[in-house]
Amino acid sequence: MTAMKAFWRTVGRDLQLALRQGMDSFTAVVFFVLAVVLFPFGVGPEPAVLARIAPGVIWVAALLASMLSLERLFQLDYEDGSLELLALAPLPLEAAVGAKITAHWLTTGLPLIVAAPVLAVLLQMDAAGFVALVAALALGTPLLSLIGAIGAALVLGARRGGVLLSLLVLPLYIPVLIFGVAAVDAAVFGFAVRPHLMVLSGLLLAALVLVPWVTAAALRQALE
């Protein structure tokens, strides 16, 4: 019971920090919108072309936007000593990691899900794919935060960690990208969406179980 309370307090503290730092937490969604908006300029305003590439463009932009904010997930806490105090709190470090990932998803993943349908309209995506897009993002963005957390913990203390982080994390994002785009494409072309969403759910469940342990181990290593 107390562990649950401590978990939500840690989530609350990270949300409070994100809100106080204002623009910082909105960088991800602003980047997401800008990156997608650039595509009609790049490939031309042809509706058929835009509609065809819309799912892929939205997903790739979501991947990059989510990664943009990952570096700060543990870095600031590591530099100012807060991470040591979290590691010494009665709450298990695994739970504290879970709390930080939850807060990261609430401040970066959730705004992406809200912004995505608007961008889909902008790219003239077939309306049949909207529900699948939101469903796939709802399963996929937590997965991005979870997988990214491992990378963010592993690069702690490394110089130029941001570049290293993208090298580590982007290859691991590929399955999320494949099944996320496939779900939307399936909906647009009238195939079954369910199998793709089931795969994403499976990946999400596996990550929920494994990631806190792996990340906590990496953090302990960084604190040694």
């Binding site: 309370k5 401590a6 307090r9 840690t10 503290r13 409070q16 920090l17 106080r20 730092q21 530099e79 100012d80 000593g81 807060s82 040591e84 105090l85 010494l88 709190a89 009665p90 709450l91």
Partner: peptide, 30 residues
């Protein structure tokens, strides 16, 4: 962990929060 307090070189002070908020978090967590 429950029976110790560690004060290291780093102050673990968040510039965006005020003193009371910082201590409240520690108090409620511990």
């Amino acid at each position: 962990r429950r029976r110790l307090h560690y004060v290291g070189h780093l102050d673990a002070v968040k510039p965006a929060l005020d003193a009371r908020e910082i201590l409240l978090f520690t108090a409620r967590l511990r």
